[in-house]
């Protein structure tokens, strides 16, 4: 399995449980719920990488570490959408949009409207 897919699977486990998990718990969850039979050290490496990238928080508990997502899936989705749609002259070149960018107020309103529909 590609590294990107692994990272996504691990994030999905963390998001679904939300409580901080140990490497062992993530490893078990991957095997039980998602039928991924991975080496324990692989899971540890992936969690470590995700922590380095700042998308996972590492909490020390006694001698072991527990891992939790830095943001819920909804929060992260909202911030990605915000980043995708907000344009300043400086950022014009970073992403290309199908229908253009929004001023901040319109953007917030659009995201809130979409969030209401989600519920």
């Amino acid at each position: 399995m590609a590294l990107g897919d692994l990272e996504r699977e691990v994030m999905t486990v963390l998001w679904e449980r939300y409580d901080p998990l140990t490497v062992r718990e993530v490893h078990q969850e991957l095997a039980r719920e998602r039928h991924r039979d991975l080496a324990y050290t692989t899971v540890m490496t992936v969690l470590d990488r995700l922590a380095k990238k700042g998308v996972v928080r590492q909490l020390k508990e006694g001698r072991a570490y527990r891992y939790a997502p830095a943001q819920s899936r909804e929060e992260m989705t909202a911030s990605v959408m915000m980043d995708a749609l907000s344009g300043t002259p400086d950022q014009d070149a970073a992403l290309a949009h199908f229908v253009g960018q929004l001023p901040p107020e319109a953007l917030r309103a659009a995201i809130e409207a979409a969030a209401r529909q989600d519920r």
Partner: peptide, 9 residues
């Protein structure tokens, strides 16, 4: 991406 805001980029 999950979410109702229609986006394509």
């Amino acid at each position: 991406l999950q979410g109702n805001l229609p986006l394509a980029y």
